[in-house]
């Protein structure tokens, strides 16, 4: 399962709930405002870091760049471009969007 989240973790609980309800081995792709969850030094960094023990976390690079946070990517987060986004969707047998 590929989980796709697009809401800021500091404003909404979508990232939080997604991390709680994603099964071990699932992939989580952070896009749009959710890319803030992939940055180091935030109030939610520790939680995301901990979740990476069981989940593969990806972030959409163009969204990080657009928001000026590309230089603050947390260790362990895999950056993907739009082609990588498509590959992720194609690799997983299903995906779930967290609105």
């Amino acid at each position: 399962m590929l989980h796709i989240v697009n809401k800021s973790p500091l404003e909404r609980n979508a990232v939080d709930t997604c991390l709680r309800l994603a099964t071990k081995g699932s992939a989580v792709l952070l896009i749009e405002d959710a890319v803030y969850a992939a940055t180091k030094g935030s109030a939610v960094s520790a939680k995301v870091q901990a979740a990476m023990a069981n989940l593969k976390v990806y972030a959409l690079a163009p969204d990080m760049e657009a928001r000026g946070v590309a230089g603050r990517v947390m260790e362990g987060v895999n950056l993907v471009d739009y082609n990588g986004f498509v590959d992720l969707v194609a690799e997983h047998n299903n995906c779930q969007s967290w609105l």
Partner: peptide
């Protein structure tokens, strides 16, 4: 609980979010 809900979601063919 979280684990059971996670399993339910994981077993779906399609999850439609609202």
């Amino acid at each position: 609980d979280s684990a059971a809900m996670a399993d339910k979601m994981a077993e779906q063919d399609v999850v439609i979010s609202f």
